[in-house]
């Protein structure tokens, strides 16, 4: 008797189909699988003389660098204003292996998820951000970025409109600016995209620049699913990323924290930032910053409650 026949035979009763359907589940979060693999590798490494590359089970982290205000000060493009972040610190390019297996797996999984998304063209890229900074009150504001302006709807009911720079809203890609309409012309082959993102920088600086600009594009631009997937693949191949699972963001959502360990400070990334992402759909949930001398002392949180296209400001 085949499996199918056995199954049919056993499940021959009214409601059997409904029962089978009730058992459907979503596949596990890639970070869950990564954690299981990492723990197993540790056990395997302990069993062998020559250690299998092991990744700490509880540590997968990425570290962004600029806070919203800092970014506002540094980046001229309107896009950066809304982004309020996405600066990833990186270290030791060239002398270190690519991102740890877990981090690379995580980014590649996120790339797969991103690639399966659907493209939607809308006049605005909206982000709803809950911001907390040490010594300040928490506030939640909405940012509507368009081709030529940024509209901010503040928590207290004010609406502020900032005109974009001459030439329209644009994003830094390597040593040039790419406009809203030209985002779709960026290459989606990871190696080609990395070359563009790294242009004008060398060594560790090139990696830091690629990571920082990738973060800006992922958080605050209407990048297509294909471009998002390519950006994640660039991150997957960048050294220094660490991951910590099951971290809660400022809204109580559980995600995976990613940090980049940089060997030195960079002009654009004076602080090590921390990202919390949701691997199941590749969304950035939060970026937070800690004190240079105390990694447990959080100084600022930007929690992304929404990031996506919007048809109008409302």
């Amino acid at each position: 008797m085949t499996h199918e026949e056995q199954d049919t035979h056993v499940l021959d009763f009214p409601g059997a189909t409904a029962l089978k359907n009730a058992g459907r589940t979503e596949p596990p979060d890639p970070a869950v699988l990564a954690a299981a693999r990492a723990l197993l590798r540790q056990a395997m490494a302990a069993d062998t003389e020559h250690a299998v590359p092991a990744t700490p089970a509880t540590a997968i982290v990425v570290t962004p660098r600029l806070g919203r205000r800092r970014l506002l000060a540094c980046v001229a493009a309107v896009a950066a204003v809304a982004a309020g972040v996405a600066v990833l610190p990186v270290v030791g390019v060239g002398s270190e292996p690519p991102a740890s297996v877990s981090a690379a797996d995580l980014f590649n999984s996120m790339a797969d998820r991103a690639a399966s998304g659907t493209q939607r063209n809308a006049p605005y890229w909206k982000t709803t951000v809950k911001t907390w900074a040490e010594g300040d009150r928490t506030h939640t504001d909405e940012y509507y970025l368009s081709r030529n302006a940024l509209v901010i709807k503040t928590q207290n009911g004010r609406t502020v409109t900032k005109k974009g720079p001459r030439g329209g809203t644009s994003w830094s890609v390597g040593n040039r600016q790419v406009s809203w309409d030209n985002l779709d012309k960026l290459p989606t082959r990871p190696d080609a995209l990395r070359r563009l993102l790294s242009a004008g920088a060398q060594g560790a600086s090139a990696a830091e620049q690629a990571v920082r600009q990738s973060g800006e594009l992922l958080t605050d631009s209407p990048a297509s699913p294909r471009l998002r997937a390519a950006l994640y693949r660039v991150l997957a191949d960048t050294p220094g990323a660490e991951v910590t699972e099951r971290v809660k963001d400022g809204a109580g959502r559980i995600g995976t924290e990613i940090s980049w360990k940089w060997s030195k400070n960079f002009a654009h990334s004076p602080h090590d930032p921390n990202w919390i992402v949701r691997p199941s759909d590749g969304q950035l949930l939060e970026i937070y910053h800690v004190r240079d001398d105390d990694a447990d002392h959080v100084t600022e949180r930007d929690t992304y409650l929404y990031a996506g296209p919007a048809d109008s400001v409302r």
């Binding site: 058992g23 589940t25 699988l33 395997m44």
Partner: peptide, 20 residues
Amino acid sequence: PAAFEPLVDRHSVALHGYLV
């Protein structure tokens, strides 16, 4: 020991479903 690892890729989804 390394021969064990492919089992993780092959069966994790099913086992996770069982657990969840």
